[in-house]
Design a protein around this nucleic acid. Structure first.
Lengths: 217, 217
DNA sequence: TAGATTGTTAATCGATTAACAATC
DNA sequence: TAGATTGTTAATCGATTAACAATC
């Protein structure tokens, strides 16, 4: 509302660096560092000072000439840019291994998200508790969404079930997705906010790196 | 050994697209498609034909003028480039929520990996079974690595325990890491092959996208 | 042979880095 | 004021796209 100036188009490359800055500044804050220059950040993070200043200036001038940046202020600004102060509501769909792990392991609250419900299709799972929530039936999902208006859905369900569930969720007003399936959401729903985690692609990338390292020996 | 020609330096941008090509060609193969042109791939994947041809030609000429690419051959070539045929051995360290989910949910075998052991520090977990393996004590990890020579370690342990474990693993000859912690492995061990999955950064990126979508309404 | 599509070179675009005037 | 460091413009670098000759 206030403070955040500029911002017309910001490239994905810049956006993906913001969480890292946010984390890094949190670490500094924990160490009691109050002030830092772009040069110091660059050295510690393995980037260039230019890049950091360019990145930050996509959103506004958060520093002060001759001084640098106030760690606490800068971190708060980046948090605001990321929307971590918005208290977005999330639901999770698919309480299998991955769904359980994500709901237990990921610190939603600390990233400003409120995980308000978990859904599964399997009657054996419905009613059991995961991450402090009682698993609900996917049959209730439309009603739930119309009532509680979640901002995002975490998709940890099998690929075959994804298309159908997506149609239901979008129809019920959900527009953000943390996607752990290989389903190409933006192809069907180009106006949604989608962030995908392709674990198996990541593993294949590691395979390439390991293999490449071997061959160059 | 044979077929794979060229390859001096290949940019990370290209490498990250290979798993997606591999998956896509697998889907085509499942549909019985035997032949495809770069133009068709581009349309279906939302890329340009030029980019696909450029990417593939980092590794060699897998197509045929006037014909296009043989789906099965191209997929096999990309699989070989990724090292999926190498049968790399993997161990997993940290059998908490995330470790259990990864070992159960991720199809290691189908990506050419052999998950041969799971380790944890917690005596209550040691001896129990996960993903068909009996959890071993981290005290055995050096001996195990010296004997079985795993190529990669999946790191799903708490941040505080990571540095110490990394020193042990590297000393025991492990040089590849699938990293789910926020620990900066390459800073300490620049010669390792590291692929990191920063789930919380991904969630913050989603937060940005959702927030941005709201503000532009 | 004619048509199609690759492999590859050249042109464009975007992102990163360098430089420096503004200013705290 | 002098020193430091930002915000911003200009230069460089790399990646993507376009074009086309080679060839199946």
């Amino acid at each position: 509302m206030e403070s955040i100036a500029k911002r017309e188009y910001v490239s994905p490359a810049v956006i993906r660096r913001l969480p890292r800055y946010y984390r890094f500044l949190g670490t500094l804050l924990g160490r009691g560092v109050t002030r830092i220059s772009s040069r110091e950040i660059a050295e510690m993070m393995g980037l260039t000072a230019s890049q950091i200043r360019q990145d930050l200036n996509c959103f506004g001038g958060f520093g002060q000439q001759g001084y640098g940046y106030n760690v606490e202020v800068l971190r708060a600004e980046i948090g605001r840019i990321l929307g971590l102060d918005k208290g977005f509501r999330a639901i999770l769909v698919g309480a299998g291994n991955m769904g359980k792990a994500i709901s237990n392991y990921v610190d939603f609250a600390n990233k400003g998200f409120n995980l308000i419900a978990i859904f599964d299709k399997d009657p054996a799972k419905i009613g059991t508790r995961v991450a402090g929530l009682t698993i609900k039936s996917t049959e209730e999902i439309t009603d739930f969404c119309l009532t509680h208006k979640p901002d995002v859905a975490v998709l940890t369900l099998p690929l075959q079930a994804t298309k159908g569930m997506l149609d239901i969720l979008v129809a019920a007003g959900v527009t953000g997705f943390w996607n752990f399936t290989h389903y190409d959401i933006l192809y069907d729903y180009p106006h949604c906010a989608v962030e995908s985690v392709f674990l198996e692609d990541s593993l294949m990338t590691l395979s390439y790196l390991v293999n490449d390292r071997r061959e160059s020996e």
